[in-house]
Design a protein around this nucleic acid. Sequence first.
DNA 1: GCAAATCGCATTTTT
DNA 2: TGCGATTTGC
Length: 668
Amino acid sequence: MPPKLNPQQQAAVKIIDHPLLVLAGAGSGKTRVITEKIAYLVQQGLPARHIAAVTFTNKAAREMKSRVSRLLDDKQSRGLRVSTFHSLGLDIIRTEHKTLGYKSAITLFDEQDRLTLLRNLISHGIKDCDIDLVDNYNRQIGQWKNAFVTPEQATKQAEADNLAAAILYDAYNRSLKAYNAADFDDLILLPVLLFQQHPAVLEKWQNKIRYLLVDEYQDTNITQYQLVRLLAGNLGRFTVVGDDDQSIYAWRGAQPENLSQLQKDYSRLQVIKLEQNYRSAGRILKVANQLIANNPHTFEKRLWSDLGYGDPLRVLSHKTDQAEAKQIAAEIVHHRFKQGGSYGDYAILYRGNHQSRLFERELRENNVPYFISGSASFFSYAEIKDVLAYLRLMVNPTDDAAFLRIINTPRREIGPSTLEKLGDYANERHISLFDACSELGLQQRLSDKSVQRLRQFCDWINNTAQKIEQEDAFKSIYLMLEQINYQQWLQENSKTPAAAERRMSNVYELVEWLQRLASNEQGEEKSLADIIAKVMLLDILERNQEQEVNDQVSLMTLHAAKGLEFPHVFLIGMEENLLPHQNSIETDNIEEERRLAYVGITRAQKTLTFSYCTHRKRYGEINESEPSRFLSELPEEDLEWANKKQLAPEEIKQRGKASLAQLKSMLA
DNA sequence: GCAAATCGCATTTTT
DNA sequence: TGCGATTTGC
């Protein structure tokens, strides 16, 4: 990227007396605009502590922070907020917990906790709900929370078929409150409710955050937009950056309409388009432009670049999905040797995760290093969830989700039947499972032995919690791990000894990391409770992944590829019913699928290869498939249908081997 | 209470 | 086909 900002970028940085919408096409330097603007605001005399920049991912926030630190020194950037929407929300909730009626140690419920709670509510009392439909209810509740619909409103508006969901929604929210807990959606929703109901608190925050910058604005949902509006106030001291053509999260509640809504809500809004692309060859952009022109637009935009026109885009055809994987793996090997580049220059992008399987196998056979993005997050590891559940329960004994997770892990001979009776009892008395254990009435329901086991557990939790609070917190955590003999439990429950070892080292990594977090928190209170809440928002594995992504072919979904770029991109599975996906065809959602293809195309810097198969194995059955309609929307003169004549599998294999031999001779 | 067997389901998933 | 969740049998 050139050292100087282009005129549009400069304008985007310098307009600060109007609310500003920056329509930033793919690869047009939007992060740069945000970071330069932060620096500019500081230079203009606005202290960094009055500036907040919000992103959607931790990764984006980290990237932004590090780029700001190249422009401003520590003193200048002191107090600057660069965070995800969700951690900004958590900050607000933590600071204002009293007004919201929460105790300070707020527990964050993840998706699993949420489902567990919903299931428990259904099996204990919410009669109108069917346990088999829990996923539907969950989705509906999420939609309501994203659309800023409270339980009261939901109940009023609800049709007969989702009245049950509305009742459940209300019960669920009450339970969360009783547990002093919040789910991810609440991290946005609660601040909005708070600001609406308490103007003085809002004013305080508006005074704190005097300039707001929002990244990936097209991905905001209704609730997030409310938060932006409230924080930015009537003056509209904000810059939002987004691209309607890269809106691919509508299914998660994102409202790309929030872009045009700004014009209605802020008459003084200025709009700037960034159309110069610093990433891709001209031809790739031409094709991308033509594809996306098939979607309706409120803001017209046309990407261009001066990086040269580039090669035609290739379209490969294959007989089977296996052949697709084989040929592309071989081709990557071949191409890399010819170019002398790095495997890290290649990416294979696809619509659904399952498409990675064949490629994985093929790459491994060819000894090509690869990494799959979007695989299990650190927090999906059972051992991490277990240990966090222990800590959560100590911080907040009413956290039933945590209680249920660990009550019998490791084995304490407390099984489902005991828990069900305990659950019934707790439910009748409207108390938490933990509190129910110490009640006298419990003895009438359960055997003495069971009650004794439960109480032993609770006493132990109380003791350990006390130790953590009063003595050296982390020493006590290590002691706790020893007492539950967690290592042994892992050994007994892992497939191999090596796996057990790895899992235990995950646990240590977690605790060490918590320790570092605790000591890094400058100034503010650094109670374990706060740390745990923060941790639920982070993802440690991300960092590990980033370190390792070096000389590896990247495999990822189109969704995961947003924001990234690669010299050579393979966009595979360009077939009807895959891209566009069958469900999207059925629900008439082609436009978002087209944007997904657009995102894929605009990831490529130098070369782009599409591929499709005529036969694909699906759910164990071979089906015929047709090339994607999107291919026919592209300019014919820029495509090269390279593979109409099929290579026999043996030939492909030969080519792969030839390349290997070539490598060996090159190394020798 | 737990392990094995069977069932059932299969886009995408920032936090 | 392949995985995870639930059910079955000991």
